[in-house]
C-alpha cells in the first residue's frame, strides 16, 4: 500500500513533448511529404491561376444572375425525376441488401461459401463508382432514368449490404441465444431477434443512402442516365448560365429538403 506520508521520489524532469520517431517512421514521413509535393506539381495546383480566375468567376456569377424562370416547369419535371430515381433506387437497393447482408453476417450465414461470396459481391459493388455503373447501364438498357436507377440500386447494395451486415454482427446476442435455446429456426431467429435489434441502424443507413442517392442522381444525368444532370450539362454547354443557376438552386433545394425530412424521420422513428 502507498504510504502518503512518504515523500515522492525527486522528479527527473518533464517528459519530452513529442516522442522521437523511429528511423522507419521518419523515413515514411519523408516519403509521404515528397509524394504530396510531387502530387501538387502533377495536379497543376497554382495559386497564380487560382487568384487569376477570380475575375472570370465574377463574370460567370454576373451572367447567372438573375436566375432564369423561363423553363421552370421543365426543371421541375427533371427535379422530380431525379428524386424518383433516388427513391426507387434506394428502396429497391435496401430491400435487396437485407438478404445479401444476412448471408454476409458471419454467425447467420448458412455456409462459409455464402459468406465469402456475399462479402465479395458487396465489395465489388461498393468499389466500382456509381458513375461507372451508370455508363454500363446506359450501354445495356439505353439512355434515361432507368439506367440511373439501376446504377443507384447497385451502389446501394454495396453501401447498405456492408453496413447492414455490420449492424447484424453487432446486434445483442442474448435474444438470439434465447430463441436458439427454444428451438427456433435460423430464419425465425433473423426475423424475430436480429432484424428488430439492428432496425435502428438499418433505418439510419437507409435514410443516409437516400440523401447520398439524391446527390449522386444529379451527377448520373451527366452521362445520360436521366435526371436533372443532363439539363445542367445542356445549359452549361449552351452558355445559358442564368438557366444553369436555376437548376443549381433547384438541386440545392432538393438536397436540403431530403436532408431535413431524413433528419425529422430519424428523430421520430429512432
Amino acid at each position: 500500500m502507498t504510504d502518503l506520508a512518504q515523500p515522492s521520489p525527486a522528479p527527473r524532469g518533464l517528459p519530452p513533448r513529442f516522442e522521437r520517431p523511429s528511423l522507419g517512421a521518419f523515413a515514411a514521413y519523408i516519403v509521404v511529404a515528397l509524394f504530396f509535393a510531387w502530387s501538387l506539381h502533377g495536379t497543376g495546383v497554382s495559386l497564380g491561376d487560382f487568384f487569376g480566375g477570380f475575375p472570370q468567376m465574377g463574370r460567370l456569377i454576373g451572367e447567372m444572375l438573375p436566375p432564369s424562370t423561363a423553363r421552370l416547369d421543365a426543371v421541375g419535371r427533371a427535379l422530380l425525376e431525379t428524386f424518383q430515381m433516388a427513391f426507387v433506387g434506394t428502396v429497391v437497393g435496401v430491400l435487396i441488401s437485407v438478404p445479401i447482408a444476412v448471408l454476409a453476417t458471419r454467425h447467420l450465414t448458412p455456409h462459409p461459401v455464402f459468406y465469402h461470396s456475399a462479402r465479395a459481391l458487396i465489395s465489388f459493388f461498393r468499389t466500382v463508382p456509381d458513375l461507372v455503373w451508370a455508363l454500363l447501364f446506359v450501354v445495356s438498357v439505353g439512355l434515361g432514368p432507368f439506367a440511373g436507377t439501376l446504377a443507384i440500386v447497385v451502389d446501394k447494395i454495396g453501401f447498405c449490404g456492408r453496413f447492414f451486415a455490420e449492424a447484424m454482427e453487432e446486434a445483442d446476442r442474448g435474444p438470439q441465444e434465447a430463441l436458439s435455446a427454444i428451438g427456433a429456426s435460423k430464419l425465425s431467429l433473423v426475423m424475430c431477434a436480429v432484424i428488430p435489434a439492428a432496425l435502428p441502424s438499418f433505418i439510419n443507413t437507409s435514410l443516409f443512402s437516400l440523401e447520398k442517392a439524391t446527390r449522386s442522381s444529379v451527377i448520373l444525368g451527366l452521362v445520360g442516365a436521366g435526371g436533372i444532370g443532363i439539363e445542367l450539362k445542356v445549359a452549361m454547354d449552351l452558355f445559358n448560365y442564368d438557366e444553369a443557376a436555376t437548376i443549381i438552386l433547384a438541386i440545392f433545394a432538393l438536397v436540403i429538403v431530403v436532408e431535413r425530412v431524413s433528419d425529422l424521420l430519424r428523430r421520430r422513428i429512432l
Binding site: G174, E177, A181, I182, G183, A193, A197
Partner: peptide, 15 residues
C-alpha cells in the same frame, strides 16, 4: 429444445 423452457439471467427479450 422446443420442449425445454430456458429462462436467462438477463431475460433476453427482444427489446
Amino acid at each position: 429444445r422446443a420442449e425445454i423452457g430456458f429462462v436467462f439471467q438477463k431475460h433476453n427479450l427482444v427489446p
